[in-house]
Computed example of a mutant assay.
Amino acid sequence: MSKLCSGRVVIVTGAARGIGRAHALAFAAEGASVVVNDYGVGIDGSGASSGPACAVVEEIVAAGGSAVANFDDVASWDGAAALVDTAVQAFGRLDVLVNNAGFLRDRMLVNMAEEEWDAVVRVHLKGHFAPMRHAAAHWRSIAKSGTMPDARVINTSSGAGLLGSVGQGNYSAAKAGIASLTLVAAAEFAPYGVTVNAIAPAARTRMTEQTFASTMAAPADGFDAMAPENVSPLVVWLGSTESRDVTGRVFEVDGGRICLNTGWTPGPTATKPARWSPAELTPVMKDLLAQAPAPLPPYGSSS
């Protein structure tokens, strides 16, 4: 029986633990060759180790799969280029890029240090852009040579990026940027046979210990709705050839739920054939707000 991703080569960033590890194992189980990328840092981005990525590679190989480890910093321009080159050198091609790497430095905005902002935005937002840029250049060169790729990018946004999350302004801003970046990349990469989608997952990981504290323990029996492995089937499907007509989409995924998020769409509108004056806007704005649904509150908000 043919597996869904047989013959495909996949990069998964941040693949040593949590959701990334689940992605790497799931792709390997469906026949893909996997580049397991992980810098091996702590939850706050400190330290570095090759051990975690190597352990996942060993697990894949022990199960009969094919994988290599990569330890490059995905938010480094040269590191991202080396990551793409690792896939091509090891397996002769690249079909799927799953951007998943990241860490947290949570702080209320009024207390947040510049370095805490910069570090989180760098690893999440630039850590998505840089691998995408080098992977897309690779696929564009293939397309220009006369062979159209059937390639995929799956980015990782978050509910924090879609709604906001109190105490996570840096993370929320980066994840919102990833959702928007996904839409731009989907349009720009389409001529080269590349689809680009994003997920906003919720699962039990090192990064969600506080957020999901009440549901961290796996149930004694029955379905574990917070297991990171619940997220990966959608990511594997998005990385397969079955998804070639799906691009520019953001999916919320957790447990057994998949939600196609519609994002920002035009709502109630007021127009006139001239410029508005500030003084006349009070009744206009009251009417618009009355017609619109109330916004969902950010995570952690008391409202």
Rank of each mutant, 00 (worst) to 15 (best):
32 A>R: 07
44 D>A: 14
20 G>L: 08
40 G>L: 04
277 S>H: 10
79 G>V: 00
23 H>E: 14
290 A>L: 05
220 A>L: 12
127 G>S: 07
7 G>S: 14
70 N>S: 15
95 D>A: 08
303 S>W: 14
220 A>R: 10
251 F>A: 07
287 D>H: 11
265 T>W: 01
62 A>I: 00
274 A>S: 15
85 D>P: 01
244 R>C: 10
156 T>P: 01
144 K>H: 13
4 L>S: 08
212 F>H: 11
76 S>V: 09
295 P>F: 07
243 S>A: 15
4 L>Y: 04
70 N>T: 06
41 V>K: 04
186 A>K: 05
57 V>N: 04
263 G>Q: 03
293 P>Y: 05
174 A>L: 03
161 G>H: 12
47 G>K: 14
263 G>E: 05
242 E>A: 12
220 A>I: 03
184 V>G: 11
161 G>T: 10
101 A>P: 11
59 E>P: 05
214 S>N: 13
243 S>R: 03
107 R>A: 15
23 H>M: 13
72 D>L: 00
59 E>Y: 02
16 A>E: 05
61 V>C: 12
103 F>H: 15
222 G>N: 05
299 Y>G: 13
126 K>D: 14
125 L>H: 06
298 P>N: 10
117 W>S: 02
159 G>H: 09
77 W>A: 15
67 A>W: 09
277 S>Q: 14
220 A>G: 15
147 T>S: 14
190 A>R: 13
86 T>D: 12
262 T>G: 04
167 G>M: 11
268 P>W: 02
159 G>Y: 07
151 A>K: 00
27 F>E: 07
89 Q>Y: 02
237 W>R: 09
13 T>I: 09
279 A>H: 07
157 S>H: 03
252 E>H: 13
120 V>A: 02
46 S>P: 01
301 S>T: 11
199 I>T: 02
155 N>K: 13
113 A>R: 15
70 N>Q: 02
238 L>D: 06
18 G>Y: 00
66 S>Y: 02
172 S>N: 12
181 L>I: 07
75 A>H: 13
90 A>N: 09
93 R>E: 10
168 Q>C: 08
156 T>R: 03
232 S>N: 01
283 P>V: 00
174 A>H: 04
287 D>R: 11
104 L>G: 04
186 A>Y: 03
196 V>F: 09
236 V>E: 10
203 A>L: 01
194 V>A: 09
62 A>F: 02
161 G>Q: 13
276 W>H: 13
283 P>L: 00
11 I>N: 09
263 G>F: 10
236 V>S: 13
124 H>A: 02
237 W>D: 09
198 A>M: 01
11 I>T: 00
254 D>G: 11
271 T>I: 08
103 F>S: 08
288 L>M: 07
120 V>H: 01
181 L>E: 06
46 S>G: 15
22 A>R: 08
204 R>V: 02
219 P>V: 05
32 A>Y: 06
253 V>D: 08
186 A>T: 02
28 A>T: 06
180 S>W: 03
158 S>C: 12
76 S>R: 10
255 G>Y: 02
30 E>L: 05
135 A>S: 10
119 A>H: 03
191 P>S: 04
46 S>R: 15
101 A>T: 11
26 A>N: 10
259 C>W: 10
123 V>N: 06
64 G>E: 04
199 I>C: 04
151 A>N: 03
219 P>L: 00
301 S>V: 06
157 S>W: 04
